[in-house]
């Protein structure tokens, strides 16, 4: 059961095919699988459907896969930070399925938990509800949303052991656990692979059963909105 691979490209070897669906972790540029995205660019795989809360920015994260036109469809909640995305979307080259953020997260979690659909009140009475089954529970309307069952999950964690037990750091956890859960195969990039036993079993955020391949590497971890306060404000 060897899960550790030498590079992001090696970790994706044999898993990619045109037209596949990929679930990606990250929120904005925080906690995105930047090394695996670069490896996807290098692979040339195309016609991808990518479920990810955001679409990166121009020149970084999923923005790179947009520039090379490898993405056919995005499933996201917010895509406002990316000029190339808007250009392709407005010209009809790129499909976009808006999902409320919590619905997207739950669709991933549900897919990973073997739940093909669930009812939620998010989006009832809005455009999001169009074409979806409505059902009443306790006198209130709920809409049916479907679980996401992706061909591949690409996620970023802080630390892993060689069995794939993962620990995330601060708000870089975000969509990574649900994205990891919903793929047939999950590939994880981490900042550090530690010895077995170095992670406290009570402090594992995602157990290794969800993780099939691991790669360690250097992360740029770009900041999208650098905001600070002055010392004298304290």
């Amino acid at each position: 059961m060897k899960k550790v691979y030498g590079s992001a490209s090696e970790a994706l070897d044999g898993l990619l095919f045109d037209g596949m669906q990929i679930a990606a972790g990250g929120f904005g540029l925080c906690g995105i699988p930047e090394l695996l995205i670069d490896a996807l660019v290098d692979s040339g795989v195309k016609d991808l459907t990518v479920a990810s809360n955001n679409a990166g920015v121009d020149g970084f994260g999923l923005g790179k896969l947009l520039e090379t036109k490898q993405i056919k469809k995005m499933m996201s909640s917010y895509v406002g930070e990316n000029a190339e995305f808007m250009r392709q979307y407005l010209s009809g080259e790129l499909e976009l399925e808006f999902n409320p953020q919590g619905t997207l997260a739950e669709r991933m979690r549900a897919g990973g938990a073997g739940i093909p659909g669930f009812y939620t009140k998010t989006g009832v009475g809005t455009q999001i509800a169009e074409g979806k089954e409505v059902k009443q529970f306790r006198g209130e309307d709920y809409i049916l949303e479907e679980g996401i069952f992706a061909d591949l999950s690409i996620v970023k964690a802080w630390k892993a052991d060689d069995t794939g037990n993962l620990v995330f750091r601060k708000t870089a956890r975000n969509f990574n656990p649900p994205a990891a859960m919903c793929g047939k195969v999950c590939v994880v990039e981490v900042e550090e692979i530690v010895e077995r036993g170095a992670l406290d079993p009570d402090h594992i955020h995602l157990p290794g059963i969800y993780v099939h391949r691991i790669v360690q590497g250097q992360h740029e971890k770009r900041i999208e909105q650098r905001t600070t306060r002055k010392r004298e404000d304290a």
Binding site: C30, K170, N174, I223, Q225, K230
Partner: peptide, 24 residues
Amino acid sequence: NGMLGMGPFPFEGEEDPDLINAGK
């Protein structure tokens, strides 16, 4: 994006790319 107990903006030089709010 996954946090309870959000604090103020960091002092200059103490920004952490792993610690952002929903406005990024």
